[in-house]
Simulated scan of single mutants.
Amino acid sequence: MSVKIAPSILSADFAELGTGVEAIATADYVHFDVMDGCFVPNISIGIPVLQSIRKRTALPIDVHLMIVQPERYVDQFCDAGADLVTCHVEADTPEKIHLALDKIHAKGKKAGVVLKPNTRAEAVLPFLDKCDIVLVMTVEPGFGGQKFMADMMPKVSAIRRYIDERNLDCELEVDGGVDAVTCKTCIEAGANVLVAGSAVYKAANIPAKIKELRG
């Protein structure tokens, strides 16, 4: 499975966001972090910004909802230009997370679930058959620039086994502290989509850095 890179625009210059999105044209996804100040202790960007950047890139937009009760908003994010929407398993009841995944698929988009660092790998199992992607956080969600948590790799490997045992067409994504060194650890553990923020946007040559992160 080829490795895909999803630069997080949370690390871009928000005064020049359109230019920042265009700068990652050689990547595979645009990673779009939505924080509500409730599920995580930070507030980021939302639907109007998604509508704006949708006009500036042909890349698929990977929307990571770090919000409580994501089912309330998934339709709007799909309509605003998301190609893929992920919801935290911790953000609502299992029934409501299932409903969110169903709503995303009903819009013709890809759907997935996200696990915080303290959430066990088995938490994906009730949702896995509905997932086009599973995202494992390798930092505590809420802020960019945190140190990579290598102790999340057994969780990544376990989820890779679940996906392979079921023969699912499901990508496995990691997010947090991914750089030119830790990317190799993630790939070895079974991840095939790497979210990278500061490693990409602080690089002198962004296309070269994206190529390097692919391993």
Score class of each variant (00 low, 15 high):
residue 54 R to T: 02
residue 54 R to G: 01
residue 56 R to N: 12
residue 56 R to E: 13
residue 57 T to K: 11
residue 57 T to V: 14
residue 58 A to D: 13
residue 58 A to P: 06
residue 59 L to I: 10
residue 60 P to A: 03
residue 60 P to S: 10
residue 60 P to H: 12
residue 61 I to R: 11
residue 61 I to C: 05
residue 61 I to A: 01
residue 62 D to V: 02
residue 63 V to Q: 05
residue 63 V to R: 02
residue 64 H to W: 03
residue 64 H to A: 06
residue 65 L to V: 10
residue 65 L to Y: 08
residue 65 L to K: 07
residue 67 I to S: 09
residue 67 I to Y: 08
residue 67 I to H: 10
residue 68 V to A: 14
residue 68 V to F: 09
residue 71 E to V: 06
residue 71 E to Y: 13
residue 71 E to H: 14
residue 71 E to C: 12
residue 72 R to Q: 09
residue 72 R to Y: 04
residue 74 V to G: 00
residue 74 V to D: 04
residue 74 V to K: 00
residue 75 D to W: 00
residue 76 Q to D: 09
residue 76 Q to N: 04
residue 77 F to P: 01
residue 77 F to S: 03
residue 77 F to K: 02
residue 79 D to P: 02
residue 80 A to M: 03
residue 80 A to T: 01
residue 81 G to K: 03
residue 82 A to G: 05
residue 82 A to N: 09
residue 82 A to L: 03
residue 83 D to S: 04
residue 84 L to N: 15
residue 84 L to R: 10
residue 85 V to D: 00
residue 86 T to W: 02
residue 87 C to E: 11
residue 88 H to M: 06
residue 90 E to I: 14
residue 91 A to M: 07
residue 93 T to C: 06
residue 96 K to C: 05
residue 96 K to W: 07
residue 98 H to N: 14
residue 99 L to N: 11
residue 100 A to R: 13
residue 102 D to R: 14
residue 103 K to M: 12
residue 103 K to D: 00
residue 103 K to G: 06
residue 104 I to E: 00
residue 104 I to T: 00
residue 105 H to N: 02
residue 107 K to Y: 02
residue 107 K to D: 01
residue 107 K to L: 03
residue 107 K to V: 01
residue 108 G to I: 10
residue 109 K to C: 06
residue 109 K to S: 00
residue 110 K to S: 01
residue 110 K to R: 10
residue 111 A to T: 08
residue 113 V to C: 09
residue 113 V to E: 07
residue 113 V to L: 08
residue 113 V to N: 05
